[in-house]
Design a binder for these strands. Structure first.
Lengths: 200, 200
DNA sequence: TCAAATTATGGTCAAAATGACTATTAGTAC
DNA sequence: GTACTAATAGTCATTTTGACCATAATTTGA
């Protein structure tokens, strides 16, 4: 979220946003505004949906098209700019009170993510190119908000035939090194054709 | 689709649409325009997403928020009006060439529906209030495009505890009458909280 | 050098779910 | 009454799941 430096929400933490220019696509506007306000660029933004209730914004009628992304915060440094005086990552459970309907947008987005992550392997965006099975498991435990059995998780993943062994091992760990795997989008797409289902 | 009676797409079949008024929500605008152009009202419209590429519309910059619904065509009679000179249902495979980016909107919507129908029980919108298990099964066979085993289908549905028995039977059929069931949205919503999964 | 700690990886087993069937029942049509 | 149709119920081998337990490989530090 960013701390707004202008307008009626000045001084409050809220979602980064701004006006769409006449000669840019809404996707481009989202990327531009994200970069201008937070310094974050080169990430894949996906449209959530449009929010168009009346009185969302007190001064005049505003329709917002919201976007989301799935990233590892530590991969991006935040540099507030433009209409933002500060930018910070918040735990979804500890988001401060927001102006406008930003709470509704956040809730809708989080619900959408939770649903999406169960039916598509988008979680892989959050992992390095090469990862361990435990790394993958911990990621999904965080997203799903519940512990998973290590052995059963491994069995299920392996049977999906989705992971490509790197024939390499972890390094610099103070315990037995785990095998590294990578995710092959091509294999995933091929499996999708046969009604493959990604459930964990 | 409706045959446009005005503007640069005059005479062409396209999706019904129009301008959002300043003092109505986008959901209300969708309902109003659908009714004005096709005469169809009182159906649950759900937002697909916003389409905001440049040059979607030749004359000026236009952003569209698309909506969809799941209905039985025979339940609604079409009465073209407002900017539409005609209104007609088309088989998704036989949609005529459309102006603007309406093809893209249709494709995105159809893909969205195919995905959604596998993970949420929206198929119930297509059935009468009271339906038989075979009716439900035949619907899903059509949507999924594959035959399902009658006995196994029944077992699976019953275990979901999703259907409410009407304590009534079919009438006017030339064979043994089947029990009628109805779908209870409240039960479904309650099940959703517990990570209930609707898979057939 | 050896025990403790830590995580990887593999296995067991009962319970539950699935898929492919078969059997029986209830009602209509002739 | 018999043929027909679909409803409903049950069987059974196979697969999947969930909750465990066991062992292997490595590092740390006493």
């Amino acid at each position: 979220m960013v701390k707004h430096a202008e307008g009626i929400s000045k001084g409050k933490w809220a979602l980064p946003g701004g006006w769409i220019n006449y000669n840019e696509s809404i996707d481009d506007a989202a990327s531009r505004l994200l970069k201008a306000l937070t310094g974050v660029s080169n990430i894949y933004l996906e449209q959530l949906r449009a929010f168009g209730d009346l009185n969302r914004y007190p001064e005049r009628r505003v329709i917002t098209v919201a976007y989301f992304a799935l990233v590892k915060p530590e991969n991006y440094s935040l540099h507030p700019g433009f209409t933002a005086s500060d930018a910070k990552w918040f735990d979804i459970q500890r988001v401060p009170k927001t102006p406008y309907d930003h709470k509704e947008i956040l809730d809708f987005g989080f619900a959408h993510l939770k649903h999406k992550v169960r039916h598509e392997p988008i979680g892989f965006n959050l992992l390095p190119q090469k990862f361990t099975l435990l790394g993958l498991q911990e990621l999904y435990e965080a997203i799903l908000g519940k512990p998973l059995d290590k052995s059963n998780f491994r069995r299920k993943l392996m049977k999906m035939n989705l992971l490509v062994p790197c024939k390499e091992k972890q390094k610099d760990v103070s315990h037995r090194a785990a095998a590294l795997y990578s995710f092959d989008k091509k294999i995933y797409d091929r499996l999708l054709k046969d009604e493959f289902n990604f459930e964990l």
